[in-house]
Design a protein around this nucleic acid. Sequence first.
DNA 1: CAGTATCCTACAGGATACTG
DNA 2: CAGTATCCTGTAGGATACTG
Lengths: 110, 110
Amino acid sequence: MKTYVCDLEITLDFIGGKWKPLIIYFLIKGPKRTGELKTLLQSISQKMLIQSLKELEHDKLISRKVYNQRPPKVEYSITEIGQTLEPMLRALCAWGKDYSQKTLENESLK
Amino acid sequence: MKTYVCDLEITLDFIGGKWKPLIIYFLIKGPKRTGELKTLLQSISQKMLIQSLKELEHDKLISRKVYNQRPPKVEYSITEIGQTLEPMLRALCAWGKDYSQKTLENESLK
DNA sequence: CAGTATCCTACAGGATACTG
DNA sequence: CAGTATCCTGTAGGATACTG
């Protein structure tokens, strides 16, 4: 079994990577179809989208609902567990915004 | 210039990766010498340690103090900006701990 | 002890084409 | 439309040896 220096690493194992935090972020705002996510995430590849969704579903952070119709419709939504990530993601966003503003200020002082 | 779907990505650009969050986490607890960090981080390579420290210093999240003596002594400490990351890192840790406990409970129900 | 310099490898992530 | 299957590439991260 893998050993962790700190619980931090556990969290990063689940929501780390380039896309997962963003997917969760958007799903917290409400359920989305596969195509909608693809549009929101802009440059994500089909492969990474499906792969990330699968892993998040497996980890019980999001859930997947299939509508039996043609053409197929699949909707992803956040789970209760996934929802608990909201405050952290908000904080992460806020920090990024703040930091980039401070950096901008410094740049303009040069 | 790079475009972001969400401010989330800015933050991840600065503290993303395998080691940076951990380094910040430990430095928040107090200043550390290079060697101490290496011990705390266990499996980190010399290269990644120095490289991460350099980038964090460049981004003003940590500061580096050199003591002029033989053998050399260098101490890293968190900056004011870096300090603002504390609540987030705490939250990240807490979540990881919680999540792994829930998962453990489910495992034992099988 | 702290840091550099190389060289190397594994794997996250991407491009493309195809199916029900 | 949602998802698979392949093949491919860039780069994050590691191993090792060396310097002041």
